[in-house]
Simulated assay, not measured.
Amino acid sequence: MATDPHQQTYDVIIVGGAIMGSSVAWWLSQSPDFQGRILVVERDPSYALCSTAHTNSCLRQQFSEPLNVRISQFTASFIKNLRANMGGDPRIEDLTIQSFGYLYLAHNKAHADALRAAQAMQRRLGAATRILSRDEIAQDFPFYQLDDILLGSHGTRDEGYWDGGALFDWFRRKAVAAGVEYVAGEVEAITTAQDKVVNVTLSSGQTLSCGHLVNAAGPRARLVARMAGLDIPVEPRKRFTWVVKAERPLDRQLPLTIDPSGVHIRQDGPETYMIGARPDPDPAVDPDDFHMDHGLWEHHVWPIVATRIPQFDALKIVHEWAGHYAYNTLDQNAVLGPHNKVENFYFINGFSGHGLQQAPAMGRGLAELITTGSFQTLDLCPFGYDRIVEGRPIGETAVI
């Protein structure tokens, strides 16, 4: 990746070149309403430490807000028809979804009622979700210990694992092919005047004029916003993942099971399973902190997994890592669109674990906003920055 931009002036500068930044770049490059220059500035050209590289790469329909369901439905359609959607390039394979489904387990009446209400809404939107009684869960998945469970909500179509890394790669590659410029470096300063971003200064010392600036910096979103004198309630929160091998693997696919404790586990291979958890307490961390908490596994995660699935009393860790949520402390949902005062500073931040599955729709939406001034497909206005100013959270309850 080059380190020196070819131009001094860009219509759009995108800070962060992982899946969100590359989605915006590609959608802009495909828009007949946009003919300008695009620069993507990426601090880590290997992408080894970005959130995209540490994702568990899953997709679900099971949200409590209809707009989030529609966003996931668009992603499912987009990736299953990826070649056609990206111009018919024969190198591009349509992606598949390993639809083992999510299974939310409810252990109290309030959670059960919330799952029932959400599932009714999801079905109205065409999602293939179903409510299972405790006996029905036991019949379909007899390996669970369910003494404390009232019911579950399970998805049977377009819910599960997919290759998000491949989508990111094609967003980036096709954006470059369309003329988008990527450079390795960091934005170190953002200059505003008369409520507009006018230029950015890179770590090389080079200053570039800027028509629109897009903050796609993931867990570093707040640091980028502060360069422009702005703020956003997004911070890095650490999330842990373990890939384990079971001495006694299950005789059928394991849904992505969300235990009431928040620990979640899913099928990862014929005899391997992926387990995720958050720390408790769950503080903001340095964006460069990828240290594993081995005590969390030993004293918290493994006992929960072995209690819920007694057959998993013997697990061997084969891989583990820590990654970051770009965690929106207001409501754990995205912030999308312009700042309320600095009109050409755009956010695509704060996805709080939903980012990979929302990247196609969110990149498209922000490209529409930049080129036409309004959303042309999905109305994504509820994710706007105004709600941050007003302290008005989105009511999404299905947050993992």
Results as ranks from 00 to 15, higher is better:
M1C: 11
A2K: 15
P5N: 05
I14M: 03
V15H: 02
G17Y: 06
A18I: 02
S22E: 02
W27S: 13
P32A: 05
G36K: 08
L39F: 10
V40G: 05
S46M: 10
Y47T: 09
T55K: 06
S57E: 14
S57Q: 12
C58D: 10
Q61P: 00
S64N: 05
P66E: 12
L67C: 11
R70Y: 03
R70C: 10
T75Q: 08
G88S: 04
L95D: 06
Q98A: 15
F100S: 13
F100K: 08
Y104K: 00
K109D: 11
D113I: 12
D113N: 15
R116Y: 12
Q119Y: 00
G126E: 11
A128W: 07
T129A: 02
R130E: 15
I131D: 01
L132Y: 02
E136M: 01
A138D: 14
Q139K: 12
Q145A: 11
L150C: 08
L150H: 14
L151H: 03
G152R: 00
D158C: 05
D158E: 14
Y161C: 01
D163E: 15
A166R: 14
L167C: 02
W170L: 05
W170R: 10
K174D: 05
A175I: 05
V176W: 05
A178F: 07
A178H: 15
A184P: 08
V187L: 04
E188C: 11
I190T: 08
T192L: 13
Q194C: 08
V197C: 09
S203V: 05
S204C: 12
C210V: 15
L213S: 10
V214L: 07
A216P: 08
G218L: 02
A221C: 13
R222H: 13
L230C: 02
W242Y: 13
W242I: 09
W242T: 09
V243Y: 07
K245D: 08
A246L: 08
Q253F: 11
Q253M: 08
P255N: 03
D259K: 01
P260L: 09
R266S: 05
P270L: 10
P270S: 09
Y273E: 02
I275V: 15
R278K: 13
D280F: 06
D282I: 01
D288T: 02
V305C: 01
A314L: 03
V318I: 15
V318G: 04
G323Q: 09
Y325W: 10
Y325H: 11
L336W: 04
P338Q: 11
E343C: 09
F347C: 09
N349S: 14
G350T: 05
F351P: 00
H354C: 00
L356S: 04
L356T: 13
Q357K: 14
A359E: 06
P360K: 11
L366N: 10
L369H: 09
T372R: 15
F375R: 10
T377L: 03
F383I: 05
G384A: 14
G384Q: 07
I388C: 07
G391V: 11
G395Q: 15
E396G: 12
A398S: 12
